[in-house]
């Protein structure tokens, strides 16, 4: 698997480049000690720390996405064998996709893709 060695080297090169950039920043910065500042929302202080359990109202979409995304992973190996396996590969895959999309359409009708 020598295809991956260049990736590792590349990661090293990028890391070195970023380190050099931060170094250059230290050399040029008008002040090196980091400034400690409050969060900005227009100038006034917030009531609490922002880190909190964030309420996402598109939560149902994440569930649908997970189901569909897992399925996508099958499609990657599938593309390599389509003509080898023949018509059954295509029929099976698109039946599967069709069933999944029927579920998405149902979720859509139930309003899962809107949240406001």
């Amino acid at each position: 698997m020598d295809g991956w060695q260049p990736m590792l080297v590349l990661l090293g090169v990028v890391g070195a480049g970023l380190a050099a950039l931060y170094g250059l920043g230290l050399w040029l910065a008008a002040a090196r000690t980091p400034l400690e500042a409050g969060p900005f929302a227009g100038g006034l202080k917030p009531g609490e720390h922002a880190v909190s359990r964030f309420h996402v109202r598109w939560y149902p979409v994440t569930m649908i996405f997970l189901a569909f995304d897992m399925e996508m992973l099958f499609m990657y190996p599938w593309v390599k064998v389509v003509s080898e396996v023949g018509t059954t590969a295509v029929v099976e895959m698109f039946l599967f996709l069709g069933i999944l999309f029927a579920a998405v359409a149902y979720a859509w009708r139930e309003g899962a893709l809107r949240w406001t």
């Binding site: 970023l18 920043g25 040029l28 500042a37």
Partner: peptide, 26 residues
């Protein structure tokens, strides 16, 4: 931006925040 002073916010999650920043070009 290179001339600007580094900055962090109060009680920030510096490790994760910095990780997110660096992850984009990587």
């Amino acid at each position: 931006l290179l001339v600007q002073q580094p900055r962090r916010t109060t009680a920030a999650d510096r490790l994760l925040g910095r990780l997110g920043v660096v992850l984009v070009p990587v």
